[in-house]
Design a protein around this nucleic acid. Structure first.
Lengths: 147, 147
DNA sequence: AGCCAGTAGTTGCATATACAAACAATGCAG
DNA sequence: CTGCATTGTTTGTATATGCAACTACTGGCT
């Protein structure tokens, strides 16, 4: 077999990025489908949850926890602010743009919880208990610790 | 503790989507960083590899293997066609838009291979042998089989 | 006070992603 | 052989994502 074909087969057989991205599309779709009736996407749910957990959240904090680019979050926050789910609050340092949940955002989260649980059940079925455990360990390795 | 806070903690502690998406960002970044000097993104590499493997690829086939929306692929293909990496070929069925690698696309893939290997090494370090094995099993469960 | 390096966020640009709707070609039912 | 359901792809629209460049603010150094 040609050298080229060997390389291709290696990538097809082993590439971690292909699999992670595939899994991401599948799992994201699972949650997005479930949340669609609420007009919410799982990406936004993640941010709402992080905000709820933090009380008053600063963009840099959320980005660090979620390994997300600040520009990505910036636009997400803007959309969610427009939706009335979060509101910016004044901070002592003028550079910061801290934000927190609104009452409406909190009510949305309450409605989202049972929906999330069902999607979570399906995702767990896909990954298996072991898969979920391994995933948690890897995520922890990436510094995802939310106390 | 309030019911609301319990729900939030449950999501923070267990949510599979958060972790999968976090891992996706981290791993995609790893490969994208490595491939940047080639002007190539890992998403495009995936498609080039699939195309190389298939010889003549039809959008629907690639989408099925990668669990990707056809519209997503459509735009990717268009970009890569503009870059001269792939070319559309005539098919017997007029609805289909089959495509294949160009010489230039093949040469790009050849140059990409050693770069991929290095990113793959880093990704493997992040996931661990066990993590990679578990991931493969899950991906297989999603129907990712490329013979 | 005034400059400047560092820090926090936002904006410009490009790609990635998906749902829904439009489009195009096929093939079958009558 | 004509209408129509089916199939394969593209387009419209919206969100997600990240790099690079920019803006805004702070705090220290002089």
């Amino acid at each position: 077999m040609e050298e080229f074909d060997k390389s291709i087969d290696t990538i097809v057989r082993d590439c971690i990025a292909v699999r992670v991205r595939l899994l991401n599309r599948a799992v994201t779709g699972l949650y997005d489908d479930a949340l669609r009736p609420l007009g919410l996407k799982v990406s936004q749910l993640n941010i709402l949850v992080a905000t709820a957990k933090l009380g008053v959240a600063r963009p840099a904090m959320v980005c660090e926890v979620l390994h997300m680019d600040t520009s990505t979050l910036s636009r997400n926050v803007e959309r969610m602010r427009k939706n009335g789910w979060i509101e910016t609050v004044a901070g002592d340092d003028g550079r910061m743009q801290p934000f927190q949940l609104t009452g409406r955002g909190k009510r949305l989260l309450e409605r989202a919880f049972p929906v999330w649980r069902e999607a979570q059940r399906e995702a767990l079925e896909l990954l298996g208990e072991n898969g979920a455990a391994v995933l948690s360990k890897i995520a922890g390795r990436l510094g995802m610790r939310v106390k």
